[in-house]
């Protein structure tokens, strides 16, 4: 897989058609988005830099983007003020957050990839020796 040059901004699209262009560095803080955008994952999103979410609407995705920037800004800070979340949005946002930012999921895919890499290496050596 050739290392293509990655764009600085990526596009997140909500189910009702709103597009949010945000910095890649912020977007990949969400585990799911990171996996989608990973060029090695061979998802289409990795090539186009465009993620479509069929179960997240514009309002929620707007808040998600706001959080991602907030998170990036306060990466190393302590005791920063919490992000303000409108109460009427919080349940939907909770679902979206759970979907987008699961560390476990991230870990899982990482370990899967590692296993995959190991297997590939093994096969490579296997074929070489044959």
């Amino acid at each position: 897989m050739s290392e293509e040059k990655q764009t600085e901004y990526v596009t997140l699209v909500s189910c009702d058609g709103f597009e949010f262009k945000i910095k890649r560095s912020a977007a990949i803080l969400a585990g799911a988005i990171k996996n989608m955008l990973d060029p090695n994952s061979r998802f289409q999103e990795g090539l186009t830099g465009r993620c479509e979410f069929e179960n997240i609407n514009g309002l929620v995705l707007d808040k998600v983007c706001e959080y991602l920037y907030y998170n990036e800004k306060h990466k190393d800070a302590k005791d920063m003020p919490d992000l303000d979340i409108p109460p009427e949005l919080c349940l939907e946002l909770l679902m979206a957050a759970d979907y987008l930012n699961e560390r476990e999921r991230e870990k899982e895919t990482n370990s899967m990839r590692r296993r995959y890499d190991k297997g590939r290496d093994f096969l490579a050596t296997f074929w070489r020796f044959r």
Partner: peptide
Amino acid sequence: AKTLVQLC
């Protein structure tokens, strides 16, 4: 920051 899940 806290995770978004935690905030929600």
